[in-house]
Design a protein around this nucleic acid. Structure first.
Lengths: 341, 341
DNA sequence: ATCAAAAATGCAAGCGCTTACATATCTGCT
DNA sequence: AGCAGATATGTAAGCGCTTGCATTTTTGAT
């Protein structure tokens, strides 16, 4: 009998079933290589003992973890929730377990998490966005850890990506806003340092501004963390300006909801007095009223495809370029023509 | 030189620094047991090689993972996000890593996740709510894995818990509703099977009903998954009844938001035509308008305290009973006196 | 200078599993 | 019955690390 409190080992099972550890291992991992009678004997020993394989030992011996790591910027809001859920489900289908951690949008924390996941033997890694220290890519490369980026597609980046064109998507939305007649645009963006999604979305607004012959320097851009309250504050700041914008494009739905709430608090009607747009099309966008006009991102598709590709990278050692997904504009009621002031 | 693509090992570092592996290990784990000169030599070898300890090997040898597992019912909405975040932060302070997985409110998935986390050598486990197969508690006990329950306090449960009194909290809210003059109450609850929080919240409503001399059998209770859309559907169902309730108590804010949205869709004014209350006080509750009247749960405090206690259980092998936290009622604008019909 | 005690380092035995290889057992033929 | 080939099982060598114990070096007091 093994020590109290100690988990039963392969050896315990082997002894009880009267076979070698190799046979037990085979019963568990390639049952067809073992004759039925033995298999059943082993199985009942496993059941009787309540045996569960020791993961660390398995990893050491097999050098595979069937674990995929993902590091997302935040779990606090729902931005990544749906995509990650789909990612997880698809991985599960293929026998992989997902390990998630969040970096709080901090590059150094992200780096630490990457090292941790590498040390834990993740067979592959999912990261969000391309912007990070090149050393990290070197590390991943040296360690031979297949890595995929999501939420941002860039064909020429150091690692393949499954995502969309943040710049073009935001540009399309800004064009729509301008077509409505708005000439004074405000932007509430996430912090763009180390965040290509935020950076490219800003660029998208600038593109649209230029394309329509408006002055880019008229654009007021505020960068702030992706939190509802921050969106509200930025809104106040924007609206308090001398030349107040008639439409405010937000870097994501969370900021937009903050802006929307503040607008309502100070008695501005949306979209009559001011238009507000979001980005991401998370559930929140449809719950608030007026519902947000926003950019729909195919979260579930992205998550699923990322899982498929990453598994392929892990198992086949191949690396294709990734895939660009399409976004679309969701018409809510938060965007309308500018009111006459 | 080690094989390409293979991570450098302790041995590589030892060779490069000209010391034994034991010394390298000590440099990393108890630096003060090694003289400065050696320590520096080892450190530069570590840096040069980009060495990261192999987690699985560490675990095997040391039988400690400094990992805590948590299994929450869902990551899809924000119910557990804030508490878990605080839990994670506090664990990090103490040098522990958090591994999260979600069970989608399914007992069998939860059980599988528990076994997985045990196999991965989690030093301790955080579970949500007490209701589960006794075999699981036996398993945990046999394996000697310290386990703590959160989100529900029950002094006499098989494992200690840090949480609040779901029943009393809901009862207090229901009393408030009844005091407003409502006599026809509807309840939209989460699925109560295997979910003590949901079950106790229903009991709380019943308690208040009885305390006020109302008829418990008049209460219409609908159980439905915790999703916005489900809340909306349940609302329709409740409102379509012969004796339509004037106040609807929801099992959580997510359901309440769904109900609220449906109310607005079908042209009912809240709270004039119908009152709606939530539970949990997640961010969402304050974003919708009217803001929800709901039960505030001290998520961050709960998360932090759970971490502290679990670490203590892991390190000191002691188990105290846990702690009951207080909830309070948040006054939104979704509860008002019944309109005269 | 000497030596005991303290401090630093090395040695080597596992931790629980997988897997290449060796060995034993079972087929179905002749 | 006897044998080759297939099939089933056993043997044992690691995987990379920690740690108790043995050994060497340093320290400081005499």
């Amino acid at each position: 009998m093994s020590k109290l409190g100690a988990a039963p080992t392969l050896d315990d099972v082997a002894k009880m079933a009267g076979v070698s550890t190799a046979t037990v291992s085979r019963c568990l991992n390639s049952p067809n290589r073992v004759v039925k009678a033995t298999r059943e004997r082993v199985q009942s020993a496993v059941d009787a003992l309540g045996y569960t394989p020791n993961f660390a030992a398995q990893v050491m011996a097999a050098k595979r973890t069937f674990t995929i790591g993902a590091i997302i910027p935040t779990m606090e809001n729902a931005i990544f929730a749906r995509g990650l859920q789909a990612f997880q489900e698809e991985l599960h289908q293929h026998g992989y377990t997902l390990l998630v951690s969040s970096s709080a949008y901090k590059p150094d924390i992200e780096e630490e998490q990457i090292r941790t996941l590498a040390a834990r033997g993740a067979d592959g890694l999912l990261l969000i966005g391309h912007d990070r220290d090149p050393k990290i890519y070197e590390f991943l490369d040296r360690r031979n850890i297949p890595t995929l980026v999501a939420w941002s597609f860039a064909p020429d980046a150091p690692v393949p990506s499954i995502g969309f064109d943040n710049r073009a998507a935001m540009c399309a939305l800004a064009n729509r806003v301008i077509a409505m007649g708005h000439t004074h645009l405000g932007v509430i963006s996430g912090v763009s340092a180390g965040n290509d999604r935020a950076r490219l979305r800003i660029e998208g607004v600038k593109d649209a501004t230029r394309q329509n012959g408006l002055d880019v320097s008229d654009l007021t851009i505020i960068e702030t963390p992706y939190e509802i309250e921050c969106g509200a504050q930025a809104f106040s700041q924007l609206i308090g300006q001398a030349s107040r914008p008639t439409a405010i494009l937000c870097g994501n739905d969370v900021l937009a909801v903050g802006a929307l709430r503040r607008a309502q608090e100070i008695g501005l009607r949306v979209p009559k007095d001011v238009s507000i747009t979001g980005f991401d099309d998370i559930e929140l966008a449809r719950i608030v009223s007026p519902a947000l006009t926003t950019v729909h991102v195919p979260h579930r598709e992205m998550g699923r495809k990322a899982a498929l590709q990453l598994v392929e990278m892990v198992e086949k050692q191949v690396t294709d370029q990734g895939e660009q997904l399409d976004t679309s504009i969701i018409e809510g009621q938060s965007l309308g023509p500018p009111g006459k002031t």
